[in-house]
């Protein structure tokens, strides 16, 4: 019985190893994995800040009701260059910070999304723009 239970895990592990081999090549990718037309909002706490190129990621633990299991969501956002030009620094959002996250969810339903805006408890909004003001 235990062997039978283990089998799907073995297959999953094998699948993830295959994916990991292909995944190493995919660091820079399209935004098509995200549903930009249906943004959502979540409250949670930052666990990890990966201030890396070509894309930054924040790992966030969403607020849960009593009895719910904690989860880890991965929010991807633009590059250090774009966020720096928009006024962020690598310290704008730190592990332990509680905030409201506006994001475009992953189309496949996995716990992640493309970060659009962060609202801090003091009301400060962290946003970004790819381009300079268009009035020039």
């Amino acid at each position: 019985m235990r062997m039978i239970e283990m089998l799907p895990r073995t297959i999953l592990l094998a699948a993830s190893l295959i994916l990991s081999f292909g995944g190493m090549a995919a660091a820079h990718h399209s935004n098509a994995a995200y549903d930009l037309d249906n943004p959502k909002t979540m409250e949670g706490t930052v666990k990890t800040v990966n201030w890396t190129n070509p894309h930054i990621t924040f790992v966030v633990e969403p607020d849960v009701k009593t009895g719910e299991a904690p989860a880890s969501w991965v929010f991807e956002v633009s590059s250090p260059g774009v966020l720096t030009r928009s006024g962020w620094t690598k310290r704008s959002l730190q592990p332990g910070d509680h905030a409201v996250f506006r994001y475009a969810p992953l189309r496949d339903g996995n716990p992640g999304g493309f970060l659009l805006k962060v609202t801090l408890p003091n009301g400060q909004e962290l946003m970004y723009s790819l381009t300079p003001p268009a009035d020039q």
Binding site: L19, S20, G23, M24, A25, A26, T57, L106
Partner: peptide, 15 residues
């Protein structure tokens, strides 16, 4: 060190 990988590299993977 290599980060955990998923189908889109490490972007959607907790690391």
């Amino acid at each position: 060190i290599p980060a955990p990988q998923g189908p889109y590299g490490s972007v959607h993977v907790v690391k």
